[in-house]
Design a protein around this nucleic acid. Structure first.
Lengths: 335, 335
DNA sequence: ACTAGCACTCCCCCCGCCCGAGTGCTAGTC
DNA sequence: GACTAGCACTCGGGCGGGGGGAGTGCTAGT
């Protein structure tokens, strides 16, 4: 059905269209790619490709443009990743050197990714699935208010202010000691279990206070799972303003929604995945593609990726996403 | 020079133009506002207003639109703030109830502000000018890496990973103790001074380690001053796409730059301030206005505000910004 | 199976047109 | 002197109609 030449034609259409933003005609193809056949032959192949749904016409006498299905085939079978240039590699390494903490890693990475791909980058905070509790601290702020702090082994710090009512130094200190003894080195799930009957092992007089703290801790542990997503490079969207039909509004709306972003990154695997147009199952993103990858030490970690028009340079973008994901993983592993 | 009627005409032009997005002509004014004069008279007044630079023509035979100077006069003398509706007040109160920590306050507030104004909201993290150091902690992560944590009385937690080389528990514990003793209760400036000769008061054998920690702490204290700015509601920009000449690109570019945002909020005072068009001193923001206010307990605190087209409903926006700033201040004061 | 040639289709750009909103001015009125 | 009525003038924007051109689909020929 789809012989080699037809595939070559499809590849030519995709690459040329991505490059020029304009429907590509049969003559342009034989000229720019050396296919050694006439334009009429290419036209026949095009008719076949259109029949199969890989390309379309904007109107009768225009060139062809790929459909979502066409891009999909291209990504799956025709587009090998473009290796990054040395300059790009250097830029990545330089950009990510000298990070100081998790916040820093995330904010720098997402900006970097936006820059190298010239598109919108999104990145999820690392989850602590594999991280373990390192320290729990309780710091008095004002009057009866204290700040509860949880540090995990990946260097992430979570915090919550709580009101303990009247409480003396010593009692608070005691609870803190016990919590650290009980939870240190534990993963989030086991820590949460442990907390269930933590209070009952304490002296009655500190139980009230302890239960408040425990509740807050459980809250933190639960919140860890639903991680924040940060976005960068929205300004890059403007160059595609004609790309997304009916302007940028729907895309921007989608990007404002944490839930949507989480879903986009949710299915990222350790290898680069591409979701094209309709495959995003979101009306606002019907003319957008998402190139995503997970990163981190274990594959259940968090995700990062790029959002752009379906008419996107997939090979280059995929290569960039993969490279950045790997660099970040390495940096996370080193700490 | 500018009698009452001329001012009334200017007010009419501003309000009508903000409402309709279209140049407003002399006839429309006498019809929609009961001025009890003929359109010819209004035309004369318009000519005078134009002479003074408060309004212009897009072209010869079009209605008038306000200039930056015209908006300025309107804001200064003609636009009283619109009181918020009860619904809006309720929404604000509801939205901001039940916050758990600083991150939460900031992210909720900025989203709220974007929503009530239907524009882009920006907000600076509270600075700790008036806050004092509450706790310093050092938590081991992997191998030689540790996480340095600084908690201040406003509940803000700053962190940094550092590499201490080989170091035993006890030495680290000692340094931590000393640091807490030395710095607890101090403002950031005094703390920084104190750190200058902190190392020399220690036993020689811990000095190497201590100096690493001190350097990192100074770094954190310095970083506190340049606070992060968060943005929300960028999607609201799309409704103004025709507003900003040459599309949204420059605005989006400006919004991506932390430095620019900081500058916009930098001069915010405790009362609402408005910067109109050129007054922003930034090419990309020449057709944008910024309505900002500071918030927090002391007036040197941080800022929040709204970015929109110069053609903006100033009275309503100013009222919203002020209301939100006050609510946030109150919440911050309560903790 | 491929190609050359040709008729056909539409989009897009350009041009000229007219319409109408709005102005500026001048002469007239209270 | 301040306001108004009236009128000529200006200019943007919408409308319609060609012409050019890129590209297709088809058919007949190699």
């Amino acid at each position: 059905m789809l012989d080699d030449r037809k595939l070559a034609v499809l590849r030519a259409i995709v690459t040329d269209y991505v490059f020029s933003r304009e429907p590509v005609g049969s003559r342009a193809i034989v000229e720019r790619h050396n296919l050694d056949v006439s334009s009429a032959t290419v036209r026949n192949d095009m008719a076949a490709l259109e029949e199969e749904g890989y390309i379309t016409h904007p109107h009768t006498s225009a060139g062809r443009i790929p459909t979502d299905k066409g891009y999909r085939l291209f990504v799956d079978r025709l587009g090998m990743m473009k290796p990054l240039s040395i300059g790009e590699k250097k830029a990545i390494a330089a950009f990510l050197s000298g990070v100081v903490d998790i916040d820093d890693i995330v904010s720098r990475t997402v900006r970097l990714l936006a820059q190298v791909t010239s598109q919108v980058a999104i990145m999820q905070y690392p989850t602590m699935t594999s991280a373990v509790v390192r320290r729990i601290d309780i710091v008095p702020l004002h009057d009866t208010r204290v700040l509860l702090i949880l540090v995990n082994s990946s260097g992430k710090v979570s915090q919550r202010t709580i009101d303990l009512g009247v409480a003396d130094e010593n009692t608070v200190g005691l609870v803190r000691e016990r919590l650290n003894e009980a939870l240190a080195g534990m993963g989030p799930r086991r820590a949460a279990e442990m907390l269930q009957d933590f209070t009952s092992c304490l002296m009655p007089e500190v139980r009230g206070l302890a239960s408040t703290v425990v509740a807050a801790l459980l809250d933190i542990l639960a919140a860890e799972r639903s991680t924040k997503v940060v976005v960068a490079g929205i300004n890059n969207l403007t160059q595609f303003s004609d790309e997304f039909k009916t302007s940028l509004a729907p895309i921007l709306d989608a990007l404002e929604e944490q839930v949507v972003l989480l879903k986009l990154l949710g299915e990222a695997t350790s290898d680069v995945t591409v979701r094209i147009g309709q495959e995003n199952h979101h009306v606002n993103l019907a003319s957008a593609s998402v190139v995503a990858s997970s990163y981190g030490v274990d594959t259940t970690g968090a995700g990062l990726g790029v959002v752009g028009p379906t008419r996107m340079d997939y090979p280059a973008t995929m290569a960039s996403v993969r490279a950045v994901a790997r660099y970040v993983s390495r940096i996370l592993a080193e700490r």
